[in-house]
């Protein structure tokens, strides 16, 4: 039987306390929780904690949370671990249902925003900068699948586009 800690029932080999440094680390299985969910859950905590992500093994992301407010004790650690675990589950499920309901979500949102904004007036059109790019697209969201993943075509082993994972350092398996 897996040893269970007092941290909201989370297995002991998943949570590591550093009470002396005012931090707690969780090892998250990235096959169970997609990286986008880990990012989303971690981001929710940046107003309360200093957050650091690193990769400790293949498919294992370590999330280190260091609460900003003092004092940091076992009760505070338990609170932050439980909150993070719940948020992580919420983000993972949200990522899944957002994909599944994408058509409905996009249709409703587009209708809501276009209905609210209305058609541009002549003044609006005059103010448009037609010489500029349509919009900044640092993540390549507007790129076609072929453009974005063209380099991967050369790799026959990759048949599905996958989100990029963080690069590991110090000899850790990428």
């Amino acid at each position: 039987m897996t040893e269970v800690t007092g941290d909201q029932g989370i297995p002991a080999d998943v949570v590591e306390h550093h009470l002396d440094r005012g931090a707690v680390s969780l090892r998250v299985d990235s096959a169970l929780y997609p990286l986008e969910a880990i990012y989303a859950a971690a981001y929710v905590f940046i107003d309360r904690c200093y957050v650091f992500l690193d990769r400790v093994a293949e498919g294992k992301v370590r999330v280190t949370l260091s609460p900003k407010g003092a004092p940091y004790d076992a009760a505070a650690a338990r609170e932050v671990v439980g909150e993070f675990a719940n948020e992580l589950l919420s983000c993972a499920w949200r990522a899944q249902i957002t994909r599944e309901s994408r058509a409905t979500i996009e249709a409703v949102t587009a209708q809501a925003l276009s209905g609210a904004r209305g058609a541009p007036s002549l003044d609006d059109l005059e103010a448009f900068d037609f010489s500029d790019e349509a919009f900044d697209d640092p993540l390549g969201i507007a790129m076609s699948w072929e453009e974005k993943y063209a380099k991967n075509k050369k790799d026959a082993s990759k048949t599905e586009p996958k989100p990029e994972e963080p690069k590991a350092e110090g000899g850790v398996e990428p």
Partner: peptide, 15 residues
């Protein structure tokens, strides 16, 4: 922020 709230309050995307 308006766009974000329209998405965040869409129940089709809410666990």
């Amino acid at each position: 922020t308006v766009r974000a709230l329209a998405l965040a309050s869409n129940l089709e995307a809410q666990p």
